[in-house]
Amino acid sequence: MIVALCLVMAFADPRFFRLQNLMIILQDASIFMVLAMGMTLVITGRGIDLSVGSVAALSAVIMAMLIKDAGVNVFLGMAVAILVGITCGLVNGFVVTKLRVPDLIATLSTDLVFRGFALVLAAGVVLSRFPDPLTWIGRGRIFETIPIAAVIGVIVIAVGFVLYRYTPLGRYAVAIGGNTEAAVLTGIDVHRHKIYQYMLLGGLAGLAGILLTGRLNAIQATAGMGLTLHTIAAVVVGGTSLFGGRGSMTGTLVGVLLLSMVVNALVMLRLDFFWQQVAAGLIIISSVAFYAALQDPGRGGLSGLFRRARGGRS
């Protein structure tokens, strides 16, 4: 689909391929790379987190207030943002496992709670003008070209790739999502690992909050409203199953890039903003339908192809 998009854009507007524009796409994608890595693990573990946007906002607001109002060191402020994110993740994990509230409802509710806290704390104020290290992370460029945020995003995805494939954290996410009963039987501590997944995603949401603040050089409590669904969409477009048990970090990277490219392309084509939404939705539907077709056992040719592809990859 990326290839198809590139072809269309090559004819429609070659400026799409300018280095400058590609770097803008990467810059836009960076926050989603960070969020989507953790979201991939959570969804693979048959969970979902609808609160990441609010966690990012809350972490960013707390960090901003510490830096601006309390004069806290900027690095300490960033560390606090990530800690706030991890704590929110811990809350999510606790509600999901120990209180046994289904993931969807739990994080839908904590989304309101975290957003509410952010609104109360910020009290309608937009905090802006942050010290250099923060804006450097958010909008800085290496050699005036490569966005630092994108480098962070790619590193996060690379770490996620290793986590998914080479650590118990990733393996148990697959096991829990694929067959919870089997995971319990083999002695895997399901609750603990679900909490780990949510904490990781929470910490990454904190990092996303830092990137968001740095990029805009401003933050308000209503920031990051659209982050959550866009992230989930990218993960699903990347081939991770919403029913758990099957995920792909490389797929997630592709999904994030694809969605960012689409948004960018639509802007370049000067499509009305509202049409952009329509297009984004259609792309998500078509890619998920594509995966569904691939896995339909009734279609021997496609599933056979898929099997060979899967077999060859590992």
Partner: peptide, 27 residues
Amino acid sequence: LVDSLDAAGNVFLGHELKHRFLGLTFL
């Protein structure tokens, strides 16, 4: 079985063989 894991992943589920690298545990 966990369908999406391969035979080794299932055989060793919950009892994975690990090695340590840079102080971290990897499968």
